[in-house]
Design a protein around this nucleic acid. Structure first.
Lengths: 184, 184
DNA sequence: GTCTATATACAGATAGAC
DNA sequence: GTCTATCTGTATATAGAC
């Protein structure tokens, strides 16, 4: 049994990725773990504390996955495939990226959480740029790494959004094909 | 003076594109046009009626813009630029695509509105495919039109999302550059 | 068409007992 | 830590008067 705070975070994460910010109400969470909503406030005094915990948790998990990819001895193509596979996993589970979802409802976040969100996207792009620069010999296009990083990430986030509405994975698949075509 | 229903729709559209679904509450709208929330129900019996009106209005405006592009005598490059310019306009005004926003909160929509949303994206892709096929001689890549259409649209939707968080237009700019590089 | 009044539900949040 | 109880705010929605 994990501790209750962790349990609450995990549940809130599920709900948020499926139902947006409205899916992480203190009452719903309380019901699901079998306590009262006032007790949830013990762990997360304000809603923004919960939102922050989720962004940090999602971000930590994501960059842990990137670390694994970075420390492998795979070639660029396989590394990019592994990067895209993180998003394919989200799509397969009919979820959204937590941060993509929050980006759509950013007006509900306080300044600190907004800047966490901004950093999340920037750091992913930074990681991608480094990956592409370190393997420039395997990149088939003249387009700068910064541009490839930005369009790859934005396209994956958009694909998650649109594919969930359509109930398929066509756009994420297309995005994968397009960017793999730019790599040896 | 436009009629009140139209005024309500226009305001709801603004709010929704800036603040998400929570931005289109009947009370807020009522306050803004100077009537009571119960009077808003006269025009839109239920919230889903308002949501539907917005999707249809946004969709109609969008495809009217596509018609103009289609009926021009521009070459492919200029037409694609004009297509992307629709999204640049949204970004410049710090807004989201209405349908992109709703895609992020799709669990709040009823079945009918979900299918309107799905059709919106599918029809844009269809329009793009036709554009690319009709001008295949100006397309620099072997990638099929269907794939280009899907990645262009998803990338623009994602770019709107991420750029608004960052407060700039870097991703939309990158998306433009990438896809113009595929065209003569 | 617009109003007042109201029903009902749910949100975030806090005080204070145990 | 968790509870009960409660406050406050807001949401959608409806009945019925004018």
């Amino acid at each position: 049994m994990t501790d209750k705070r962790d349990q609450l975070e995990a549940l809130a994460m599920e709900n948020a990725q499926r139902c947006g910010m409205s899916g992480m109400s203190f009452r719903t969470l309380a019901d699901e773990v079998g306590i009262k909503s006032s007790s949830v406030h013990y762990y997360f005094p304000e809603k923004s504390d919960l939102a922050r915990a989720l962004i940090e948790r999602y971000s930590d998990d994501f960059f842990a996955a990137l670390d694994k990819i970075e420390n492998s001895n795979w070639n660029l193509r396989r590394k990019v495939k592994a990067f895209i596979a993180i998003f394919e996993d989200v799509a397969r589970n009919k979820k959204l990226c937590l941060c993509g979802m929050m980006a759509a409802e950013v007006e509900q976040l306080d300044d600190h959480n907004r800047s966490l969100l901004e950093q999340y996207f920037k750091n992913i792009e930074k990681w991608l740029v480094k990956l592409l620069e370190d393997n420039h010999q395997d990149v088939r296009t003249e387009l700068p790494p910064r541009l490839i990083a930005k369009t790859l990430l934005a396209g994956l986030e958009g694909a998650l959004l649109l594919d969930r509405v359509a109930g398929d994975m066509q756009r994420i698949k297309a995005q994968k094909e397009l960017f793999l075509s730019l790599i040896e």
